Computed example of a mutant assay.
Amino acid sequence: MSQIVIESKPSATRLEQLGVSKWPTWSKEVSTFPWVFPEQEIAYVLEGEVVITPDGGGAPVTFRKGDLVTFPAGLRCTWEVKQPLRKHYQLDGTLVGRIYRRIKLFFTR
C-alpha cells in the first residue's frame, strides 16, 4: 500500500493549479474514529491538527493547517482530531465509481 504524502505549505500557484478553492469542504470536531479510504483523497487543511495511525502498526502521521495531504486508496486507519478540522478535499474517480467502491467495501468487511 502507498504511503500518506504531506506537502507542507504548498504555493498559491500549486493550489490554484489543483483548483483547491473549488473543492468541497469537510469539518470535524475533536474526536477519535476509524476510517477507510475507498479511493485516493487529496485534502488541503484550512484549520486544525490531526494524527492518523494506519492499521497494522504503521507509524502515526500528523498534519495541520496549511498541509496538502494525499491519502492512498485502501488505507485503513484511525483518525485523532486534536484541534477542530476544516479541510477542502477531492476524491479520485467518478461519482458512480465512488458509490461502487463504498458498496463493495460495505459487503467485504
Rank of each mutant, 00 (worst) to 15 (best):
56 G>W: 02
58 G>V: 09
39 E>S: 14
21 S>D: 11
104 K>E: 13
2 S>Q: 14
106 F>L: 15
21 S>T: 03
50 V>D: 06
86 R>V: 15
37 F>Q: 11
21 S>W: 05
100 Y>V: 11
100 Y>L: 14
30 V>Y: 00
81 V>L: 07
31 S>L: 06
36 V>T: 15
8 S>N: 13
1 M>K: 10
8 S>T: 07
51 V>Y: 01
103 I>H: 09
74 G>M: 07
61 V>S: 08
52 I>G: 02
73 A>P: 01
23 W>Q: 03
64 R>C: 08
2 S>K: 13
56 G>R: 11
96 V>K: 14
42 I>Y: 00
84 P>F: 08
88 H>F: 01
18 L>E: 05
94 T>F: 08
12 A>N: 13
43 A>G: 04
75 L>C: 03
68 L>T: 03
43 A>S: 15
28 K>A: 15
84 P>M: 00
32 T>G: 04
33 F>N: 05
66 G>F: 09
12 A>V: 08
72 P>T: 02
35 W>P: 00
64 R>G: 05
18 L>N: 09
101 R>S: 13
107 F>C: 08
101 R>T: 12
12 A>K: 14
29 E>N: 11
57 G>Q: 06
105 L>N: 07
63 F>I: 05
10 P>S: 05
35 W>N: 09
50 V>F: 04
7 E>C: 01
58 G>E: 03
58 G>M: 04
33 F>I: 08
25 T>R: 09
79 W>H: 10
68 L>G: 02
83 Q>H: 06
25 T>P: 04
11 S>F: 03
63 F>A: 08
92 D>C: 11
64 R>M: 05
2 S>Y: 02
49 E>C: 12
1 M>P: 02
33 F>C: 02
4 I>N: 09
20 V>E: 08
36 V>D: 04
38 P>S: 05
44 Y>G: 00
18 L>A: 10
16 E>R: 11
63 F>Q: 10
49 E>W: 00
57 G>P: 05
36 V>A: 08
97 G>E: 15
24 P>R: 03
63 F>T: 07
2 S>R: 12
96 V>G: 11
92 D>G: 06
40 Q>M: 12
10 P>L: 00
46 L>Q: 12
18 L>F: 08
22 K>G: 14
41 E>H: 10
77 C>N: 03
75 L>K: 09
62 T>H: 04
23 W>K: 03
74 G>V: 01
43 A>W: 00
56 G>K: 10
63 F>H: 07
90 Q>L: 14
102 R>C: 12
12 A>S: 13
92 D>W: 08
75 L>V: 10
25 T>E: 15
106 F>A: 15
102 R>W: 09
9 K>L: 01
2 S>V: 03
93 G>R: 03
96 V>D: 14
84 P>H: 09
15 L>K: 11
29 E>K: 13
9 K>M: 12
47 E>A: 13
85 L>D: 01
86 R>F: 03
37 F>K: 10
46 L>S: 06
54 P>W: 07
67 D>S: 09
55 D>P: 00
101 R>F: 01
103 I>P: 00
46 L>M: 14
80 E>K: 15
